[in-house]
Design a protein around this nucleic acid. Sequence first.
DNA 1: AAATCGCTCTTCATTTTTGTAGAACAGCAC
DNA 2: GTGCTGTTCTACAAAAATGAAGAGCGATTT
Lengths: 298, 298
Amino acid sequence: MKSDFDNWSDIRVFLAVMRTGSTLAASSELGIAQPTVARRIDALEHVLGLVLFERDTRGFRPTQNAHLLRDEAERMESAALSFAEKASTLRRPRPIRITAFAANLSGRSTDIFNDFSARHPEIEFEFLPGARVFDLMAGEADIALRLAWTQPDPELVCRKVSTAQFTMFCAASYAERHGFPASPQELKDHKILALRHDAITPRIYKWLRQQVPEERIYQKFSEASLRDAAVRTGQGVGLMNVRMAESDVKNGTLIRCFDPPEALNVPHLILISPDAYRRREVRTFVKFFAPRYAAIYK
Amino acid sequence: MKSDFDNWSDIRVFLAVMRTGSTLAASSELGIAQPTVARRIDALEHVLGLVLFERDTRGFRPTQNAHLLRDEAERMESAALSFAEKASTLRRPRPIRITAFAANLSGRSTDIFNDFSARHPEIEFEFLPGARVFDLMAGEADIALRLAWTQPDPELVCRKVSTAQFTMFCAASYAERHGFPASPQELKDHKILALRHDAITPRIYKWLRQQVPEERIYQKFSEASLRDAAVRTGQGVGLMNVRMAESDVKNGTLIRCFDPPEALNVPHLILISPDAYRRREVRTFVKFFAPRYAAIYK
DNA sequence: AAATCGCTCTTCATTTTTGTAGAACAGCAC
DNA sequence: GTGCTGTTCTACAAAAATGAAGAGCGATTT
């Protein structure tokens, strides 16, 4: 037998009458009309099957039943207040959490953040740099700047920045000593520096194995930046993001071995969790950031 | 700034949609129409200023905000359930608590209780015998059988049983040794046994002092039954309820000194707290008990 | 490829709830 | 006493919420 007590709002009315001692006073406290208050109390008494107030011309006086229910009613009120409080917290602006490779959050990107912060000083950021893939759908971060090796969740809001290209690079010093592979076929004669098993993308690993026997691949780097440093110091050849290597190629530190193979192209995306995208400040930020960020990557 | 969140019932709807994942399923769980569920959610989102669900053709999927509010909503639900539970406890029959002098709950009265219990075995009693005056308005007891020395609260439901009469009695053995006071005027030559200062009724004390100098009044009894026992064993003369002494007079143990003075008459009442009188079983009991109890006192 | 299922939305008539206005009444101050 | 204040009712009109029916839409099954 289910209880018929389904109009929880009547508890508010009950408490107001309890506290003020009259339906008239309660009505002005609640901002509703006096007859409505009286009717809500009638209805409540009816569903509970209890008399809660003694009516007479000088007010509503609580019966013992009413006194005994007061505690429970107040527990309900405080639950309602903390619900509203929590909602109000969620409504307040929170920092925008952005995850990306450290490289994408430094250099020219920082100028974009600075420009944005100058315009919107009230909007704060939280940066989560690193290779770890945060789960945007689970709310671990709001925005991700990522190379989309795997198909992103279709729910995510998605902006394409560029197509990232990868190819082999080696230091000028390395080339002097060992020459350099001018095509994928020649890779097998070189020492290949690569990310560790647990950090390397399956797609890249597969491509590498098609060109080179396993024993030539040195998988000891946990982060791309460590591998890149090793390449720059001439310890071997390594697959690098063309954009990341660009300035080193220009100043002669690095040599680009051959044109980026199509198979290694990957979209560079801005991903936004739909929950975050619902926040005004996040949309404002994305609108500002996306074109400028894309411009960096031509 | 007061929150606009005033329709607490919307939390029920919120939880139902949260649990079932669709407004249609929630509507059948709640026993209301599907469009109503959707409208309640819209309204809730609007007053909270938060998006709670992602709508599409296959249902309502909770956003992160909804997930974060779920705990608070459930706290509210459990408060509502315990409110309903408490109400249901109050609705259940409880024992009828009766307070009276022990003498009024024994003897012929017990027959009335037995007869009533035979007819209504489901109705239980709790007896609170003794001189202590329980506060019926505060809910300390439901029914009192009392001599109304003081004006009872006008809110109390009240039935008159009889006019109790008091006068002086002494044991036959006492009369043999000292004679007995045949009028109030003669009392000053006797030893008067009376209740202690903290137990005696002001009205009686005043009357006694009008007849007798203070030093003749022995106020050492905390209970009427102790004083009566002392009178019966011939230790002095004492004011007793005429009805209580009746059988002892008939069998010659006690002597009624003189006719009961009008000034000591006091109404004997059945008093019922208005809260208790609202309970059906209490009314049933009073209807049965009152005439039979009054019959005992002629 | 078509049919079905389980949803959401929209519309509109109906029902329910609410508010307004005023009568009646007790307590209190003058 | 008389008038004032604070209260509860009642009646009726206005406003709001609700439900029923049906269109539309994906996903899934046949």
